[in-house]
Simulated scan of single mutants.
Amino acid sequence: GPSGAIRVTQRMETTIPGIGAAGDCVETWHRILQRPVYLPLGTTAHKQGRVAGENAVGGERSFAGSVGSQTVKVFELAIARTGLCEAEARTAGFDPVTIEIETWDHKAYYPGAHKLRIRVTGDRRTGRLLGAQILGHWRSEVSKRIDVFAAALFHGMGVEDLNDLDLSYTPPFSSPWDPVQMGAQAWMSAVKTGADKSFTADRPTNLEKGTQHESP
Score class of each variant (00 low, 15 high):
2 P>E: 15
3 S>C: 06
10 Q>Y: 03
12 M>G: 00
16 I>Y: 11
18 G>H: 10
20 G>D: 00
20 G>Q: 04
22 A>Q: 08
24 D>L: 05
24 D>K: 04
25 C>H: 03
25 C>Q: 05
27 E>K: 14
29 W>L: 10
31 R>C: 01
32 I>E: 01
35 R>L: 14
36 P>W: 14
36 P>V: 08
37 V>F: 02
37 V>S: 04
39 L>H: 09
39 L>Y: 06
40 P>N: 10
41 L>D: 09
41 L>C: 08
44 T>C: 06
44 T>K: 05
45 A>T: 06
48 Q>D: 07
50 R>C: 01
51 V>C: 01
52 A>Q: 12
54 E>H: 15
54 E>G: 14
55 N>A: 11
61 R>H: 05
63 F>H: 07
66 S>K: 09
67 V>T: 14
67 V>G: 07
67 V>S: 08
70 Q>F: 15
72 V>P: 02
72 V>Y: 03
74 V>H: 09
75 F>P: 04
77 L>V: 07
80 A>P: 06
80 A>M: 09
80 A>T: 10
84 L>F: 05
84 L>K: 01
85 C>H: 11
87 A>D: 14
87 A>G: 03
87 A>M: 07
89 A>W: 01
89 A>N: 03
90 R>K: 13
93 G>M: 06
94 F>C: 05
95 D>P: 01
95 D>A: 12
98 T>P: 01
101 I>E: 11
105 D>C: 15
107 K>F: 06
108 A>L: 06
109 Y>I: 14
114 H>T: 02
114 H>Q: 15
115 K>R: 15
118 I>R: 07
119 R>Y: 02
120 V>E: 08
120 V>P: 06
121 T>D: 02
121 T>K: 02
121 T>S: 03
123 D>A: 00
125 R>S: 14
125 R>K: 15
125 R>P: 05
126 T>K: 01
127 G>L: 00
127 G>P: 00
127 G>V: 00
128 R>V: 00
128 R>A: 02
129 L>E: 00
130 L>H: 04
130 L>Q: 05
130 L>E: 02
133 Q>M: 11
138 W>F: 15
145 R>T: 00
146 I>D: 05
152 A>C: 04
154 F>C: 02
155 H>T: 13
156 G>Q: 09
157 M>K: 13
159 V>N: 09
164 D>A: 15
166 D>C: 11
167 L>C: 07
167 L>H: 08
171 P>S: 00
172 P>Y: 02
172 P>D: 04
175 S>T: 14
176 P>S: 02
177 W>H: 08
177 W>D: 12
181 Q>S: 05
181 Q>T: 07
182 M>K: 14
186 A>V: 11
189 S>V: 06
191 V>W: 07
192 K>P: 00
194 G>F: 12
196 D>C: 12
199 F>G: 02
202 D>Q: 13
204 P>G: 02
205 T>D: 14
206 N>T: 04
206 N>W: 12
209 K>F: 03
209 K>T: 03
211 T>G: 01
213 H>A: 12
213 H>N: 13
215 S>E: 12
215 S>V: 13
216 P>F: 10
